[in-house]
Design a protein around this nucleic acid. Structure first.
Lengths: 228, 228
DNA sequence: AAATATCGATTGTTCAACAATATTGCGCCT
DNA sequence: AGGCGCAATATTGTTGAACAATCGATATTT
């Protein structure tokens, strides 16, 4: 719980923000949970003022929602968020793969993420598999060589990890994607961009179906919300 | 200069953030300028702590850059930023137009922005023309019906307005785009999405050339920066 | 039971203080 | 004169306490 890091010259606020981020995407802070200023400032050993700076940053990143006079709450992705996220992933990732340069350095990052996912699977660390999956697709976005686009995807990825938290059986959920990612990487390495793009499309279709399935299982009422 | 708004229940921090944003994109705060906490807190009549919350938010939005122990500075777009921004605009806007639904409500927003641009041109308000141009292309992004994508473009648009600030002769710069935008809107209204996408591509090519030209005129040394 | 008054807890905002770091300016030496 | 080190100064980083404003829940009244 110590906040002061003796020989780390990084800023306190950034550090606390990173720690809260981890708590959120790691599932220790559930979506919708209220982040009390007093409780957190005591737990993390920082002043309320500094904590408020952290909150502003996390709110701008979309990880928490700030309600006036009510405090901040962990963001709660809904069905429209899931739809939106996969729409954006298609828009960004498919052209990134289609137009990728042969032997782009990001391909190595993809293969590294793939190896990490396999090692996590062997250890039964399914949350690690999910993180590696996201790292793999962040590498795909890096094929586009755009720092702003990668930063945007990183933000989307945080929300996605939040969404992953609703999945009840991660072993069943993340396992098939390792193989699909492997196929994408192999096709890219071989220089067959159109085939890689097609494989990526299938991945995204299946991933969205599975996430939406998990969501519907948790919120059975949400489908027919229009016209009660 | 009054900060306290009697009957406006909005948050103070958001208000101050909006005001500083305007100062930046309006050119009153030049790129690279140092934002002193003491000076600004006195000028805007807010405490240093509240101002720091504003800074965190603006930094997360990319409008200012936060350097540890040195304060915050107005972001300074460089050549790579310009290249990156237009790469992203192509990636986002062209598919948005190509895949637009006929008679999408955003088309009305485009036409409204167009009318605003024309009215601003008649009044000689070239900054207004530039803002209307950006509003037009924000409407193009809205064709994709993705709230996250629109928010991302809004962030890019802030940077773009910052870039516009380097243009010396805005009347020469923004004038031709009114006609090009008009052609895009007309083709979209007519349902010819491929032609609209082609016209948009031409717009983006020309806009990038002109912005880069303006930038090179200001920073003649920047081109041959590789291998001195 | 419904509307209302009240109270406690939480957030919103400010201020003053001190520590840590950066910038400035000055004297000093070569 | 010109560069260097060092103290003096200004700025940022962070905290704690204080008070106003608002929200939530409980108790009271009708």
């Amino acid at each position: 719980m110590s906040a002061a890091r003796p020989h780390a010259p990084l800023a306190l606020v950034e550090d606390v923000a990173a720690r809260i981020r981890e708590q959120i995407v790691g599932g220790h802070l559930r979506p919708g949970a209220h982040l009390s200023e007093q409780a957190l400032s005591k737990a993390l050993q920082v002043s309320r003022n500094s904590l408020r700076e952290v909150f502003r940053q996390l709110a701008a990143e979309g990880l928490v929602r700030h309600e006036l006079n009510r405090g901040v709450f962990v963001a709660t992705p809904d069905l429209s968020a899931i739809i939106d996220i996969y729409k954006i992933r298609r828009l960004i990732e498919i052209p990134a793969v289609s137009r990728a340069y042969p032997n782009h350095p990001a391909i190595e990052r993809m293969e590294a993420a793939l190896a990490l996912a396999q090692s996590c699977r062997e250890k039964g660390d399914w949350i690690g598999v999910g993180s590696a999956d996201i790292a793999f697709h962040a590498a795909i976005v890096a094929l586009a060589d755009s720092s702003r686009l990668s930063a945007f995807f990183a933000k989307i990825a945080f929300e996605l990890r939040l969404v992953f938290g609703i999945v009840q059986t991660p072993e069943h959920f993340h396992a098939p994607f390792i193989e699909q990612n492997g196929r994408i990487a192999a096709l890219l390495r071989g220089g067959d961009m159109p085939a890689a793009a097609k494989a990526l499309e299938e991945y995204l279709d299946q991933a969205e179906r599975m996430v939406r399935g998990a969501y519907d299982r948790l919120h059975p009422a949400d489908q027919a919300k229009t016209v009660p």
